[in-house]
Design a binder for these strands. Sequence first.
DNA 1: ATTTTATGTCAGCACTGTTGACTTATTTTT
DNA 2: AAAAATAAGTCAACAGTGCTGACATAAAAT
Lengths: 163, 163
Amino acid sequence: MAEVKSPVNLLFLRDDDLRQGIELLFFAYRDFTAKADETLLQYGFGRAHHRVIYFVGRNPGMTVSELLDILKITKQSLSRVLGQLVRQGFIVQRPGSTDRRQRLLSLTDRGAELERKLTEEQRALVAKAYRSAGAEAVEGFRKVLLGLINETDRERFTPRTQR
Amino acid sequence: MAEVKSPVNLLFLRDDDLRQGIELLFFAYRDFTAKADETLLQYGFGRAHHRVIYFVGRNPGMTVSELLDILKITKQSLSRVLGQLVRQGFIVQRPGSTDRRQRLLSLTDRGAELERKLTEEQRALVAKAYRSAGAEAVEGFRKVLLGLINETDRERFTPRTQR
DNA sequence: ATTTTATGTCAGCACTGTTGACTTATTTTT
DNA sequence: AAAAATAAGTCAACAGTGCTGACATAAAAT
């Protein structure tokens, strides 16, 4: 099925093209989260816990505010899951060195282990999709998703400029 | 767009590449749903209502079972939102002609109007992302997302073979 | 006539989001 | 030094959306 004729010709976007994109996002996200959700159940956790564990693992020593900015939820919502994770020994908090009001977050060994387990499943799925689609497609995937993300958060993905 | 040339065909996928993909999906989906969620609030509805309205609009006359298959939720969960939408006149049910146990679903005018309003926001966002990324990128986006979707649902996206 | 299927309903529970009100440390500003 | 702002947390109540389990009804299939 000759792909050279690229179905979407820049300026001519039919309703069906856009709806297909919408549906792809729905189905892909649904399946992307399905497996980790199962694993989380075994720990009595939900998707919110995964997000916290993921981003803390990714940014050790981050503050609660930074985490709130990423998740875009209220501190009361975060407090619930974060509290559980701290009490159950998946995350530790230590006061900031310059600003002692801050509670810098990082994973414990146990937290890191769970993070690995959860993310492993998603990494494998993404790896499979990347491989079957090819390097060029991955580049396109990145470009389009980036375009869906609000300008502020988009810069999280800019190459090497430290934030 | 010669796909054979993919620079590294057996992609060398570093942990960071995969994590970037994971994060792109998270942020993109978060922002992709944000606007419609706001609109839904004005109607006292949630994201689940949107999904129902969307898929019923897309497949007029579909059965409840088909809808359940797509959403992958229980009938009790669906029942709640579907019931609300029916009682409030966004969706109508009529018995199937060959199998009168079925309740075929379709949008009322009011439902179609809401569907348009909601999906319009997402269509606009996808259109923007598509345009800024370019036709080739869109093709890649499709390929990768398709690879994330389970095999069974993947065929919803195969070109013209009716299912 | 019996069983299966399509659909719905009631009840209760869990997770995750919200708002609002208030507290405690600490830092910043005046 | 006093006042104000900030980082973080807490309690309470509520809403939306999943889930399981149990049961009901009508129609179709066997």
